[in-house]
Structures are given as structure tokens and as C-alpha cells.
Design a protein around this nucleic acid. Sequence first.
DNA 1: GCAAAAGTGTTGGAAATACACCCATGC
DNA 2: GCATGGGTGTATTTCCAACACTTTTGC
Lengths: 254, 254
Amino acid sequence: MIEKKISEYLENAHEIFLPGVSLDVVILGYSENAIRVLLLKLKEYNLWALPGGFIAKNEDVDAATHKIVKERTGLEKLYFNQFHLFGKTGRNASFLQESSHAAKLSADARNWLNQRFVTVGYFALVRIDQVVPQPDILSEACDWLPVDQLPATILDHHEIVNTAIGHVRRQLNYFPVGLNLLPERFTISELQRLYECILNQKMDRGNFQRKILKLDILVRLEKLKTGGAHKAPYLYRFDRDKYQHKIQHGIGFI
Amino acid sequence: MIEKKISEYLENAHEIFLPGVSLDVVILGYSENAIRVLLLKLKEYNLWALPGGFIAKNEDVDAATHKIVKERTGLEKLYFNQFHLFGKTGRNASFLQESSHAAKLSADARNWLNQRFVTVGYFALVRIDQVVPQPDILSEACDWLPVDQLPATILDHHEIVNTAIGHVRRQLNYFPVGLNLLPERFTISELQRLYECILNQKMDRGNFQRKILKLDILVRLEKLKTGGAHKAPYLYRFDRDKYQHKIQHGIGFI
DNA sequence: GCAAAAGTGTTGGAAATACACCCATGC
DNA sequence: GCATGGGTGTATTTCCAACACTTTTGC
């Protein structure tokens, strides 16, 4: 059944999709003190790949991205950004060509797959706890893997992930990513650990607290009931209105 | 003769170039107190367009950009950067379809032109005085036009220019663009006027001087012999070694 | 001398840093 | 009590914006 779907998908691709352009999304989340990327484990290969796909002939590239991320994560409201086009020669869907499905395809379909592809890189920031990872028809598994310990991937997906991280890191100055990566309610320490993870450097506790609160985009909630042997920290959430207003006028955090 | 070249170019395009992907370069320069963009005036239309083109099937996208900028400017050593892929539906080479050349084309060639195109936006920073603008075969003129007074353009080229400016403006923090936009030797005031142009805001003279010199990427040269009724300012040039070193570690200017 | 632009100094306030100090809690 | 993590205070330093002062030059 699935097999048939794959064959159908590949057979019809050349009629439905733009030729030569694909799309890969670096879906980033944060859990257990690590920035993680959602990767798919391909059937028939011991390789991982970014979620991605093709762009329908009558579809905006942004819309195609939204659709892909929604399919893999189940999320509807998304923060995502295009960050780079990867256009080296020699990029193609080689891993599909060698698959067991390729043999059965028509010449048109095979030619379409064999052509060179440029790929548009997007990154998306999501709350890991809200995501139910969903493999696509070409993959057998779907998992959150820490970005600093990537497994073997197809093509240049390693480079795509690293470029994405660089962009997120630079965005941190203008854009408080916590809103998209943390659960609705969180403590300042949790936010600090996220920042330390992204920037890969320790920060002073007291100064971080003052600095982030002075941005005036957080709302303090009731105290956290924790089991820890220490003072219970406050919970905060983002004030979406103030947040929207601030990012338009630019914040300098770092 | 030219007419024949155009027909040949369009007729063969579908065999030589990647389908569905084009490339536009926002070539920026600075003169007479304005940031200027190199635009081409198309034959048969009263519209301007960015220098651009297609990507050969066996050519890196970056290499194609380099080739295009070199052809339009004559420059060999270039600073350029990819900044965005424009991927809305409905983008195509409509202006070419209606041209007098389109009628004579084969069905294959016409179909290739009629398809939807996504386009990769690049910006390049050049020294205007070193450039000899060179129209391409589809254009009758080639001129430096101030970015805040753009003429009517084809497609979304207006948006592409404005997006590019935004990127350059944000880069100013990490990247002292003066090296690429100013002549070899310049005064601090000239550099300040450039910054004021890009950021569209006045800056304090004394503070600008101290700030830019503290970056430690400029070398002071002999005095400028000026005809002005005032103290002759020093000339400076960029210290390329220090410059390269600094931009890798990031400078915070603004 | 005077106007104009350049180079440099000064100064008050803001912001960043590196801590120190208490607080609440579970064991 | 005490270890642990949280919230806040503070002294020091650094930085920055605003403006003043001086220098050089052509008229």
C-alpha cells in the first residue's frame, strides 16, 4: 500500500512539481538542554534527511514550506524563515534514483528525478512538546537529534543544518526566539539555558535576568511549585502584544 | 546581428539552463551622496530590470552570479552575497514572452520561457568609479539609479531591491561595507556620509570618527590636498589583513 | 579676522560586569 | 542546619552621546 503510494508520488512528480527546485526545512526545537533538529530516517538507507519536498507548480514557496512543516509536526501556526538557497552543481535526488522504486518509473519520471536540484533552505522554530513527529512516505522514522551530534545525512544536509544554526544565532540579537522554542510558561533559568545553548557560552545569572526582564516582553505569573530543594522560581510567559511591537522596532540583546 | 543573438539565446535557453530558476543581482554602488543600483533599460519596453540571468545546468549558482556581475561591471574581484529566494506564484518571464523575438521561437523554447520562475536574489557591493556599465543583449541602456527613486521595473524587482537594502543595512553591524563601496583612499567624512546614506540618519561627527577608528581597520595616510577653505582632512584606506580578521570575529558597530 | 571643516577633549549618564547578599525550600 | 537555586543589590568599569574647544586652511 505504502509502496504503491511512493511509486505514484514519484511517477507523478514531474507533472505536479516545479522542476529542479526542492525545499528543505531545518525544524528546530529545544529539549533536555540541547537544540534539536527533526530528521527523517530514510527507508532502505542508513542515512538521515531533513524534512523537505517539492513545490507544486502553482504554489508559493512559503506555502509549500508551511505544508511540509505542518505534515511533519502537526502544527498549524508556525514561525519559519527562508535563509539560503543551496545551489552547488551535482545536487540531485541520487538517493531516490537508487531506490527500489526508481526502476519501475517511466522515463519522464526518471529524468525528472535525475536532474540537478537546487534547494531552498528554511528553518522553523517549534515547541518540541507540542510536536508529534510524523515520518513521510519515504522514511521509516522521525526523530529529534541534537544539532551538535548529527548522524550521517544525505547530500549537503549537514551543511544546511549548520548554516541554519548560524542564522538563528545571529537572529538572537533582534529576535527573542524563546517564544517559539519554549513551552507557554517557563522560568528565567530555563530561558537562560536556552540562550546558552544557542550561543554556546555561559552567561551571568543575575545580569541575564535583569537584561531579559528589561526588554519588557515577559509577564510574571504565579510561583512555580517545584520539588527542588530551593526557592521556587517565578514562571513567566511572553506578552505577545509587546513582543510583536518590540521585534518590529528591533531589540538589541547581546 | 544583435537580433539574431537574442533569438539564438532564447531558442537555446531551454537546453542550456536550469528550468524555472533565475537569478537577479542588486549591484549597489555609492556616488554623489546616494546609494545607487545598476539597472538595465529593456528594449521595446519603458521598464527597467535588475541584471540577471539563468543558471547553466552544470554551473554553481554563485558562479553564475559572479559571471553576470562581471559581464555588467567589468569587475573581476567581487563581494557579493545571496540574500533571498523570491518564490511567489505567477513569476515568469512575461516581458520576454511578449517581445518580438518570442514569436519566432520553437514550441520548446516558448514553453521554457512561459513556465513559472523562482529567482534568487543576490546583492553585490562595488566601487562605482571602477565600473564600466555594460548593457546585456536584451537591454538598450544601463545606469546607476538612486535606490530611493527607483523607476518602474518589471515584475517584483522593486521589492528585490528594497529587500537587498534591508540586508545591507543589517549587515552594517557586522560588516564595514565601506571597503567595497568607497574608492581606495577616502576621508572619514566620506565614510560617514556613506553610513548616513545607508542608515538614513545623521550621526555625530566626533563620535563617528572615534568609533570607526577604534575598530582598528583603517590606516591613516598622508594629508589630503583639498581646495576647500578649511583644514585638510587625512586620507585613510582599509587595512585588509586586520579587516579580514575582524569581520570573522564580528564587530558591533551600531 | 573669519568662516568652515577637521581633529580631539570633556563630561554626565547609561549600561554592562562581576560579584555579594539574602530568601525559600527539601533533606 | 545546610546545600541549592532564586531574586535582588551594588560597586566598578566601560561605553556612549552630546557638545565644547582647538587647529588648519582659503578668502
